[in-house]
Design a protein around this nucleic acid. Structure first.
Length: 426
RNA sequence: GGUGAGGUGGCUGAGUGGUCGAAAGCAGCGCUUUGCUAAAGCGCCGUACCCCAAAAGGGUACCGAGGGUUCGAAUCCCUCCCUCACCGCCA
């Protein structure tokens, strides 16, 4: 959520920044300002009337205790009360409209964000390692998975419909090995505190991390309970300290959480549907930071590096791209995507998206800290996958495949998986 | 799911219709005294929003949330949320 005062003071600046995203959200700014003026006008009048009522009511109390008549005063206050009721409704309506609108206006891209229209304009920031070479035609993960019985999509569909995965045997074990490996790495070497949060969250939390109200059609909700299946651990973990005022020395807070993620993927039917690349439920290890505003961009770099470390230790080739203004997510000011190489798809797969939301989420969830002057200020929030599982899983088996159909696993997984290879007969 | 008790400022806790944004204590900040520490004394010490070009200053709201009664609500009524205790059910 943008700071209404910033919008008020520098509307042209705000409009220009938002316009870089494309779309017509900049138009909403004028509407917002109109509502804001209306709201403040009603509020000011309301406050004057409230003051008057307060004064007169005290006067009534005084007169009554002295045994004097207060009839004419009571009539006046009653009339003021009616007016207060009317104006109050007006003020509340404006307030609601303002908030609703504010919740649907995206964050301002960072001043240095690369300009661009869509994903094709995203610059590559760096890459690591090299594409593996095969002296045989490599299979994609779907073929490998079914040959080695690592997952069973047909039977998963029987249980839950298309777009669900059922890992089996060595596949289930490999998934678990990857999760354990990543959690250990981030807790032991990168200093994150592990969180195992609820997967069902309240509406307010979904608003806090910007999934709602705009993206409600993409979310799984439980109508009667007004709860939602978290589409990412970002939701429960970032909201962990919502409506709190943290002590400055306690920042940054660094959390890592492994959770399943639930997404309707409405409207993406037919895209990337082969195998386990795009599904309704997947596992993910997520990194979340709550920082002071001054150093959130440093923390953003290190968070991204922490996520990259996973791929480096697994020996998987990847590249990091920065999202251009046109491709940036709704709440993000700056985002790096990490993409691992998939020989089977002959393409890079997004396995992590590391974003700095600045105070955009914090303002929505009233997440603050007390600075050295004793003033309450909004924190900055960041998150990034560290990493998303099905795609990482796909890259691991595709890159490790051998001519005989077996898969050689990265050495670092040996203590977690208990074997160096996955063979057909296993 | 049932019954009961509760939700007041950073914390403890008083307040059952009017002058209560809220006693008191603790914690915190500042000053005085002091060789230093300790102790004591005095003062300050919530949040949000609005008015004002800004500062100074002024105002309004907020006692879990929302509605209602009333001239006036922390206080009375209703609904909901949450916490605690016991009972039932269940992995």
């Amino acid at each position: 959520m943008l700071d209404i005062r910033l919008v008020r003071d520098q509307p042209d600046f705000v409009k220009a920044r938002i316009a870089t995203r494309g779309g017509d959200d900049a138009r909403k700014i004028d509407e917002l300002l109109a509502i804001d003026a209306e709201r403040r006008k009603a509020e000011t009048q309301l406050q004057q009337l409230n003051g008057e009522r307060k004064r007169l009511s005290k006067e009534i109390g005084g007169r009554r205790s002295r045994g004097e008549s207060s009839d004419e005063l009571e009539a006046r206050v009653r009339a003021i009360g009616d007016e207060i009721g009317r104006l109050g409704d007006e003020a509340t309506a404006s307030e609601t409209r303002q908030r609703d609108l504010l919740l649907r206006i995206p964050n301002l891209p960072h001043a240095d964000a690369p300009m661009g229209k869509d994903a094709s304009d995203n610059p590559v920031v760096r890459s690591w390692g090299e594409k593996p070479h095969f002296d045989f035609p490599p299979l994609d993960h779907a073929a490998l998975g079914s040959k080695l019985k690592l997952f069973d999509l047909e039977r998963a569909a029987k249980l839950s419909g298309s777009g669900f995965i059922c890992f089996t045997g060595a596949g289930a074990k490999l998934e678990r090995a990857l999760i354990y490996f990543m959690l250990d790495l981030h807790t032991r070497e990168h200093g994150y505190t592990e969180i195992s949060p609820p997967f069902l969250v309240r509406r307010d939390c979904m608003i806090g991390t910007t999934q709602l109200p705009k993206f409600e059609p993409d979310m799984y909700g439980l109508e009667e309970n007004q709860m939602f299946l978290a589409p990412t651990a970002e939701v429960p973990v970032t909201n962990f300290h919502r409506e709190e005022i943290l002590a400055a020395p306690d920042l940054p807070k660094k959390f890592v959480a492994y959770t399943p993620c639930f997404r309707r993927e409405a409207g993406s039917a037919g895209r990337e549907t082969r195998g386990i690349i795009r599904v309704h439920q997947f596992d993910k290890v997520e990194l979340v930071k709550i920082t002071r505003p001054e150093n959130s961009y440093e923390e953003h770099e290190s968070l991204t590096a922490n996520a990259e470390r996973v791929l480096q230790l697994l020996g998987l080739h990847y590249r990091v791209i920065e999202l251009c203004t046109g491709d940036l997510g709704f709440g993000s000011a700056k985002t790096y995507d990490i993409e691992v190489w998939s020989p089977g798809q002959n393409a890079y797969l997004e396995v992590s998206s590391c974003s700095n939301f600045e105070d955009f989420q914090a303002r929505r969830m009233e997440l603050r800290f007390k600075d050295a002057d004793g003033k309450n200020r909004f924190c900055h929030t960041l998150n990034g996958s560290g990493l998303a599982l099905p795609r990482l899983f796909a890259a691991v088996i595709e890159c490790g495949q051998q001519r005989d159909g077996s898969v050689r696993l990265p050495e670092i997984l040996l203590p977690y998986f208990g074997a160096a290879e996955i063979r057909r007969d296993a």
